[in-house]
Design a protein around this nucleic acid. Structure first.
Length: 258
DNA sequence: ATGGCAGAGATTCTCTGA
């Protein structure tokens, strides 16, 4: 079974690129983020023809999350309770016996900006939701998405330069740690304890070819599911321009389960 | 090489992203 997460930076601008990726990697369940579209503009039919059902929680212009699955999806929760002003950033479904969450966590802009405090609150609400056990069976849950936090110094291209700035603060890292302590594993780090590999590179300044990136796109899984994982990798080829098609600034991250 | 921002929305410019 192949699970994946991908911030695709605009579903309408990226559709052909995503279809190429689905054909190449054949994932079973995919969490998508940053749809930048309402449900009425989501290309359900193109995904159906590619063999995927889709459920989405969208909004106009910004944010938006979806789950693609080869099997049927039952929506467990659309939107994180208590956070509606922050936008469409969470969708939980049951598919293939797994509770699968696609998250687009708030960015926060900078530590001085009001959005930074909102970001921390959003993570607090997420922890409350997960700890409550309402709607979600924690023992068979996978949480994927763009967390907009560098978990550890190894996950940044330049911790020395960026320590204490957005994505690199103790307050953010404590929030992520609280989520993980509920009972999840960071699948990439579990299988690759010492590897520096990123999932996002800025479009600007040649950041991709200079490998100035961050690992902010994560797959978390309950211990039971984590024990079945055999391989986790960033699909770096799909951060490159392909056949003249523009990539997202994030690469897909893929986990293989036996 | 992977090449030097990009997408959406309201109007040729602003806002946002990480």
């Amino acid at each position: 079974m192949i699970l994946a997460t991908w911030n695709i930076n605009g579903i309408r601008a990226r559709l052909d690129y995503i279809l190429d990726w689905l054909a190449a990697r054949k994932p079973d369940v995919v969490g998508l983020q940053e749809l930048k579209a309402e449900e009425k503009n989501f290309p359900f039919e193109a995904f159906r023809q590619a063999g995927y059902s889709a459920v989405i929680h969208g909004q106009k212009a910004w944010n938006g999350v979806a789950v693609l699955s080869r099997g049927a999806c039952e929506v467990l929760q659309a939107g994180l309770p208590g956070t509606s002003p922050a936008g469409a950033r969470m969708l939980a479904v049951d598919t293939g016996g797994i509770n699968f969450l696609s998250l687009y966590c708030p960015n926060g802009k900078s530590i001085e900006h009001p959005d930074f405090r909102s970001k921390l609150s959003w993570f607090d609400q997420l922890a409350v939701f997960l700890e409550s056990g309402d709607r979600i069976d924690k023992d068979r849950t996978v949480i994927v998405g763009d967390f907009n936090i560098c978990p550890e110094p190894i996950d940044s291209w330049n911790e020395e330069l960026l320590a204490g700035t957005i994505f690199h603060t103790g307050e953010e890292r404590q929030r992520l740690e609280r989520i993980i302590k509920i009972g999840f594993e960071d699948l990439y780090r579990q299988l690759n304890p010492d590897t520096r590999m990123f999932s996002w590179w800025d479009y600007r300044g040649g950041a991709f070819y200079k490998n100035q990136g961050l690992r902010i796109d994560l797959l978390l899984a309950s211990d039971l599911i984590a024990s079945r994982v055999t391989e986790v990798y960033t699909d770096r080829d799909f951060r490159k321009k392909r056949d003249g098609r523009t990539p997202s600034d994030h690469a897909p991250v893929i986990a293989v389960l036996e």
